[in-house]
Design a protein around this nucleic acid. Sequence first.
DNA 1: AACCCGTGGCT
DNA 2: TAGCCAAGGGT
Length: 322
Amino acid sequence: MSLPGAAELAGTHHLTDLHRSMDRWFSEVARVLPWRSPDCSPWGILVSEVMLQQTPVVRVLPVWEDWMERWPEPADLATQPAGEAVRHWGRLGYPRRALRLHAAAVAIVKQHGGRVPDTHASLLSLPGVGDYTAAAVAAFAFGRRETVVDTNIRRVHARLVSGLALPAPSLTASEMRLAESLMPDDVELSVRWNASVMELGALVCTARSPKCSDCPVRDSCGWLAAGEPPPTYTPKGQAWHGTDRQLRGAVMAVLRVADSPVAPELFERPAADLGFAADGAAVPLAALHRLNSAPEQLERALEGLLRDGLAEMHDGGLRLPA
DNA sequence: AACCCGTGGCT
DNA sequence: TAGCCAAGGGT
């Protein structure tokens, strides 16, 4: 038992018709994004792909612009302390990505002469670059024919081909095979196809409230043909309130704005209680205090940040890595 | 393989 | 409002 192949798509479209419909739609409605510009360097595309991991486009845009102006090439970032990458990551979330992007820049300089490598395998060896990002950079920066499968593409395939409301909880081998079978053979068309399916998932074939009336391939959609069956499982939500992640985030918000190491006692009690004058970190410190966490949890959060290299001790205080 | 890792907009 | 969700990766 396997997913239906490309020849068994619902409706009457052939695969080439599907490619044509998607390509036309993409050229008409695709968003204008700086990392899609022909002028954008492979480094710019790599940075965008890492920033876009689990993070919406609108939040990435200003940070990406700042990074590109600040560090136009891998070597520009590689010569900086890792903490600068984390600081200028701002509130994008998952700051370990900034750390890994910095490590990737160092690796690009030391092992690839300062140029972003151009094959899937060599990209995959970079810190913070997994199968998706390696495929995306190889395709969008270097024009390669790659099986690019992200959450958007998975959802489009699940609906269009498999007739399901949502893809499986985690990426399966059969999904990769399906994605491969759907791609145009032509290299340049394959790049356009990957971008357009991703864009369709982002703009039209969304997780909730898909805009099927705007869909260029609705007549071929297996999910619509099946009468829009509901999901066969309920995704488990991501806990947030009261978690270590929330506390780590609050600590990182303090470290990003602090201009000197922060004494650990300041994380536990307001500076006024300890006789310190408030500095630039007063606001995020107050936010941290409002979380009212257990001392044990705070200790766990700090240990985690140290272990992950997001923070380090210096002069008895905590700071971003130098 | 299951779990962990930030953040904020949207419904 | 509380939960869902986002161009995933590492362990």
